[in-house]
């Protein structure tokens, strides 16, 4: 039996969209003595398991990302599969 495939999706705020979590993490790092990390952007990571029998899922996963996993108004996504 073929094993299921995996797709990973990374969602992040678009460049220029305020990321208060990233800013707060960066400030904490600076306080901890890691001042060389001058910027932090936070994001989300999703791992999707895909039926082995599924064909080319490229378009389907794009739909999943733009309709649900990311809000295209403020977020970008990147898929690896």
């Amino acid at each position: 039996m073929a094993t299921n495939k995996r797709a990973t999706v990374f969602v992040s705020l678009k460049d220029g969209v305020l990321d208060p979590q990233g800013v707060t993490i960066q400030k904490a790092l600076a306080q901890m003595g890691y001042g060389e990390f001058v910027s932090v952007r936070s994001g989300k990571f999703f791992e999707l398991e895909v039926e082995a029998s599924a064909g080319d899922i490229g378009q389907r996963i794009d739909e999943v990302c733009s309709r649900l996993l990311a809000n295209p108004i403020i977020e970008d996504y990147r898929v690896e599969h």
Binding site: L18, P20, Q21, T24, N71, I73, I74
Partner: peptide
């Protein structure tokens, strides 16, 4: 309403968190 597209734009985390 913003997520479903009946209103424009998006609401993000409060700037002070």
């Amino acid at each position: 309403l913003t997520e479903v597209g009946l209103l424009p734009g998006a609401l993000i985390r409060n700037s002070h968190l």
